[in-house]
Design a protein around this nucleic acid. Structure first.
Lengths: 160, 160
DNA sequence: CAGTATGTTTACAGATCTCTGAAAGCTCGA
DNA sequence: TCGAGCTTTCAGAGATCTGTAAACATACTG
C-alpha cells in the first residue's frame, strides 16, 4: 500500500540527475535536446547506447537524436563506436570529454582577444574605450595562456 | 564620386566590432539583446551611456534596454552610475567585468561537481557509469580549485 | 542483387521566446 | 504634494527555433 513511498531506485535517480544536468547545460547555452542526449549517454548504466535506445529513453524522434549526435560528435563529447554484430550505430560518452569541453572555451578566449584588438585599433589612446579594451586584452591574454596549461596539467595528473 | 569607397571611420569600426562580438556572445548562450547592450557599453567612446543612448544606438525599444540592463547588473558586468545633474540613469561597463564573467563559470563548475556526486551516489562501483562520473568529478574538482586561483592571480597582477 | 534495417535530411507545425508599444510606477525638484 | 521626466512592467505580435513525420540515402544480409 505504501509502495509508492519507496525511495527512488538507482535507475530513476540517474535518469533524474541526467535530466537536471541537461537543464542546467541548456541554460548555459547548449541546445536542450543535445544536452539531454549527452547526459543520457553520461548517466546510462550501459557502456554505449544506440540511437534507438536514446529515442526510447528520452521519448524523442530519431531525427532529433540524429541532429543532437551531429552536434556532439564534432566537438568531441561523444563518439560513434563500431558495433560488431549489430547493424545499429552505438554511441558513447567520450573519455576526456570534460577537458575537451573546457578547451572549447579556449576558442572563445581567442575570439575575445581578437575583439579587443580590433577595438584598440579603432580608437585613440587615452579614451575610456581604450582603457576598457586594454583591460579586456590583458585579461584574455592571461587566460588564453593559463587555461590550456591548466587543462594539460589535469590531463597529466589524471592519466599519470 | 568614389567617396563610398573610403575606409570606415573609427566610429563605424567600433560599432561593427561591437555587433560582431555581440553575435559571438549570443552564440555562446547570452541573450542577443543583452549581448548587444553589453558590447555597446564596451565599445562606446563615451564613459557612460543612458538608456536613451542605448535605444538610439541599437535601434531598440526602452523596454528591451530595461530588460537587458536588468540581466547585466546582477551579474556584475554593468553598473548604474549616479548622474549628478541628469535625471537619467547612466550605465557603465564595469571595471573587472571580464574577471567577473569568468568567475560565473565557477558556479557552473560547482554544479557539475554536484551533478557528478549525485550520479556516483546512485550507481555501483565498477560500472562504466561510475568510471565516467569519477573522471567528471576529478576534472571539476581540479578546475573548481584552480580557476578561481588563476583569476585572483590575474587581478593581483593587473592591479599591482 | 534485391530486400530490409537503419540513419539522415527536409518541410512543416507547434511551441517558445523576445521585442514592441502603451500604460503604470518611481523619483526628484519645485 | 504635485508634476515632469524616466524607467519598468505587461500583454500581445512577430520572429525564431526545434521536433516530428515522412521521404530519402546508405549499408548489411541472404
Amino acid at each position: 500500500m505504501f509502495a509508492i513511498l519507496r525511495a527512488m531506485d538507482a535507475k530513476e535517480q540517474l535518469r533524474d540527475a541526467a535530466e537536471r544536468l541537461a537543464l542546467t547545460l541548456a541554460q548555459g547555452g547548449m541546445q536542450k535536446t543535445t544536452a539531454r542526449v549527452m547526459t543520457a549517454l553520461l548517466y546510462t548504466e550501459q557502456d554505449t547506447m544506440t540511437a534507438a535506445d536514446l529515442c526510447e529513453e528520452l521519448s524523442i524522434s530519431s531525427g532529433a537524436v540524429s541532429t543532437a549526435i551531429k552536434q556532439l560528435i564534432p566537438v568531441g563529447l561523444v563518439e560513434r563506436v563500431p558495433a560488431p554484430g549489430s547493424r545499429r550505430d552505438h554511441y558513447r560518452f567520450r573519455e576526456g570529454a570534460w577537458a575537451t569541453l573546457m578547451s572549447q572555451q579556449n576558442t572563445m578566449l581567442n575570439v575575445m582577444l581578437h575583439a579587443a584588438q580590433e577595438g584598440i585599433d579603432a580608437t585613440g589612446d587615452g579614451t575610456p574605450t581604450a582603457r576598457r579594451l586594454r583591460e579586456m586584452q590583458d585579461f584574455y591574454t592571461f587566460m588564453a595562456r593559463e587555461l590550456p596549461a591548466q587543462i594539460e596539467s589535469w590531463r597529466k595528473q589524471y592519466q599519470g
